[in-house]
Computed example of a mutant assay.
Amino acid sequence: MSDAAAPVPVPADRRKGRGALTNQTNRYERIAREAAHDGWDIPEDLPPLRTEVTDETPRTVITRNASPDISFDRSINPYRGCEHGCIYCFARPTHAYLGLSPGLDFETRLIARPDAPDVLERELRKPSYRPATIAIGTNTDAYQPIERDRGIMRAILEVLEAYNHPVAIATKGTLIERDADILGRMGRKGLARVGLSVTTLDAKTARAMEPRVPSPARRLKAMRTLTEAGCDVRVMVSPIIPALTDHEVEAILKAAAAHGAIAASSILLRLPQEVAGLFSDWLTEQFPDRANRILNRVCELHGGKLYDAEWGKRFTGQGHWARLMTHRFAIAARRNGLASQLPPLRTDLFALPPRAGDQLSLF
Rank of each mutant, 00 (worst) to 15 (best):
P131R: 12
A132P: 07
T140G: 09
Y143N: 14
P145Q: 00
P145H: 02
I146D: 14
R150C: 02
A155R: 08
I156G: 09
I156H: 08
L157G: 08
H165Y: 12
V167T: 03
I169A: 14
T171Q: 11
A180V: 00
A180H: 02
G184W: 02
G184R: 04
R185D: 12
G187N: 09
K189W: 00
G190S: 07
L191H: 10
G195P: 04
L196I: 15
V198N: 01
V198R: 01
A203D: 11
A203K: 08
K204S: 13
T205Y: 06
T205E: 11
A208E: 04
A208C: 06
R212K: 07
V213I: 03
A217K: 06
K221G: 11
R224H: 12
T225H: 14
T225M: 11
L226D: 05
D232E: 15
R234P: 04
M236H: 13
S238W: 08
S238G: 06
P242G: 02
P242L: 03
A243W: 01
A243H: 00
T245H: 13
D246I: 01
I252V: 07
I252F: 03
L253W: 05
A256L: 05
A256G: 11
A257V: 06
A258G: 02
I262R: 12
I262V: 15
I262L: 12
A263V: 06
L269R: 10
R270H: 04
L271W: 01
Q273H: 15
A276M: 01
